[in-house]
């Protein structure tokens, strides 16, 4: 084989870069010198349950929606995409440093509370020993830096890490981050050009108005300032209000979460079986 097609070579390099990123994660310096991290590289059809889970959650989580659209886009086009999952169990500490940063006076109290009250939050499990937490973060950072060193686009995603947890990847870890690596190209995970068609101008505009209303706020002398939400904002003025979600909105969230649960239940046995067989 005297010649290689450059594009094909770049595609093949994604998996190699993901492997080297995994090696970098294990090479990351630690504060504790004690944390065992886990790493897996999930590719091709094994990514499908993750994408399905993320897609189920997307209607109520815009950040999940961005990452869902990105993964789905590349998977549908059979683009090379490495999902390097890095996890660790952070909810027990045998350090005995009793530093207090976790909110407990001693590691023993932390462990006791964790045993009785710990569990999953929205993205990750907790509580977490802050020193082990930073060692895990360092592993994720080194993985990203290694991929970057090879000029592979990469991004550490708590969202996709949570989706992996939802369908059963790394059952013993309490925290997981997915470092998506590749496909080769510019603006893959930042200024994501492939996402443009999924989020029209109006949606961008509405998101900005919702998240930064002070930028469009009119004179506040009334203490109930209107928001300049249109060119002719002085007609039929609009206001920001705060109130609990309506019954219909709560129902929508609950219905969505029920669908997310269905996806999890569908994939959990198959994915967790892999770990059982490994043991």
């Amino acid at each position: 084989m005297a010649r290689l097609d450059g594009r094909a070579a770049a595609r093949e390099a994604v998996l190699e870069a993901a492997k080297l990123a995994a090696a970098a994660a294990f090479r990351a310096p630690q504060l504790t010198g004690k944390l065992e991290i886990e790493a897996e590289i999930i590719t091709h059809e094994d990514q499908d349950p993750i994408i399905e889970f993320a897609g189920a959650l997307a209607p109520i989580s815009p950040v999940m929606a961005f990452d869902y659209q990105t993964m789905k886009h590349f998977r549908e086009r059979d683009s090379p995409l490495g999902c390097l999952l890095i996890g660790a169990k952070l909810d027990r500490s045998d350090l005995g440093w009793d530093c207090g940063a976790c909110g407990f006076e001693s590691c023993a109290e932390f462990n006791k509370w964790s045993k009785e009250n710990g569990g999953m939050g929205l993205l990750w499990g907790g509580p977490s020993c802050v020193w082990m937490l930073m060692d895990w973060a360092a592993a994720c950072d080194f993985a990203c830096a290694a991929a970057g060193q090879y000029r592979m686009e990469a991004r550490a995603m708590g969202t996709i890490g949570a989706a992996c947890a939802g369908v059963g990847f790394m059952p013993k870890a309490t925290a997981r981050v997915a470092v998506l690596i590749g496909p080769p190209g510019d603006f893959v995970y930042f200024s994501r050009k492939q996402n443009r068609d999924h989020f029209p101008y109006e949606q961008h505009r509405e998101s900005l108005l919702r998240t930064s209303p002070t930028n469009w706020q009119a004179f506040p002398g009334s203490t109930k300032p209107c928001i300049k939400s249109r060119d002719n904002w002085w007609e039929n003025m609009e206001y920001v209000k705060w109130e609990p979600l309506s019954e219909a909105e709560v129902q929508y969230v609950n219905d969505t979460m029920a669908k997310v649960q269905e996806v999890a239940v569908k994939h959990l046995p198959n994915i967790t079986k892999w770990y059982e067989e490994k043991e």
Partner: peptide, 19 residues
């Protein structure tokens, strides 16, 4: 603070310090 570091701290921010 009764402990060397006054906790609890935001885990996500601590995570960021790790990065």
């Amino acid at each position: 603070s009764a402990t060397p570091i006054k906790g609890p701290l935001c885990g996500a921010r601590v995570d960021d310090l790790g990065y």
